[in-house]
Amino acid sequence: MRYQCLVGVIFATICIVLAGCSGVQTLSEQQRTALEDRVTERWQALEAREFEQAWEYTSPAFRAIFPKQLYRKKFSYAVTWELTGVKVVNYDASAAVASVVVRVMSEPTKRTSTASELIGATPTSVRERWIFTDGQWWFSANY
């Protein structure tokens, strides 16, 4: 009986230690809000076609390599966006990286066919990677 109790205590201790090491690491409510705010601000700049301002949300390492003018050329003026939602779907604390799904309505700026007029705005989900460095969340641009 004493042996079974000891084995039970050891097993419980191992489970607690393993759970602590491999448990899901989450953002605090304050961290999540700060990230969601940054994502929203960047997309508001994109909606307003202020691409230079959107560049300011890219990581310092990205900005050190890609100037604003090059970043601006990445975007098309043929589509408009309207932000409809932001959701943090994953966070890796050891890498300080968060995956975010941004929901937008996209619509062509010029109706070039009857089909484009009938389709109108379409919902789109964009998966983004954001990194936390130097006390701030930064968009990790894929180039």
Score class of each variant (00 low, 15 high):
residue 90 N to M: 03
residue 90 N to W: 06
residue 90 N to I: 06
residue 90 N to K: 13
residue 91 Y to N: 05
residue 91 Y to E: 15
residue 92 D to E: 12
residue 93 A to H: 09
residue 95 A to K: 14
residue 96 A to P: 08
residue 96 A to K: 15
residue 97 V to N: 08
residue 97 V to S: 06
residue 99 S to R: 10
residue 99 S to A: 15
residue 100 V to E: 05
residue 100 V to T: 10
residue 102 V to S: 03
residue 102 V to M: 12
residue 102 V to R: 05
residue 103 R to F: 03
residue 104 V to L: 07
residue 104 V to W: 01
residue 105 M to Q: 12
residue 105 M to N: 08
residue 106 S to P: 01
residue 106 S to M: 10
residue 106 S to Y: 02
residue 107 E to P: 00
residue 108 P to W: 09
residue 108 P to M: 04
residue 108 P to L: 14
residue 109 T to G: 03
residue 109 T to D: 02
residue 109 T to H: 08
residue 110 K to A: 11
residue 110 K to L: 14
residue 112 T to V: 13
residue 112 T to L: 08
residue 112 T to E: 13
residue 112 T to Q: 14
residue 113 S to V: 01
residue 113 S to Y: 05
residue 114 T to D: 08
residue 114 T to V: 01
residue 115 A to M: 10
residue 116 S to R: 10
residue 116 S to N: 06
residue 118 L to P: 00
residue 119 I to F: 07
residue 120 G to S: 06
residue 120 G to N: 04
residue 121 A to Q: 00
residue 121 A to S: 10
residue 123 P to G: 00
residue 123 P to Y: 09
residue 124 T to W: 02
residue 125 S to D: 13
residue 125 S to Q: 04
residue 125 S to Y: 08
residue 125 S to W: 08
residue 126 V to H: 11
residue 127 R to I: 07
residue 128 E to I: 10
residue 128 E to S: 09
residue 128 E to Q: 11
residue 128 E to R: 02
residue 129 R to I: 03
residue 130 W to Q: 06
residue 130 W to K: 09
residue 131 I to V: 15
residue 131 I to N: 13
residue 131 I to M: 12
residue 133 T to V: 11
residue 133 T to P: 04
residue 133 T to D: 02
residue 135 G to S: 03
residue 135 G to E: 04
residue 135 G to R: 02
residue 136 Q to E: 14
residue 136 Q to M: 13
residue 137 W to L: 13
residue 137 W to D: 03
residue 137 W to Q: 12
residue 138 W to H: 11
residue 138 W to L: 07
residue 139 F to Y: 15
residue 139 F to R: 13
residue 140 S to V: 11
residue 140 S to G: 03
residue 140 S to H: 10
residue 141 A to P: 08
residue 142 N to I: 11
residue 142 N to M: 11
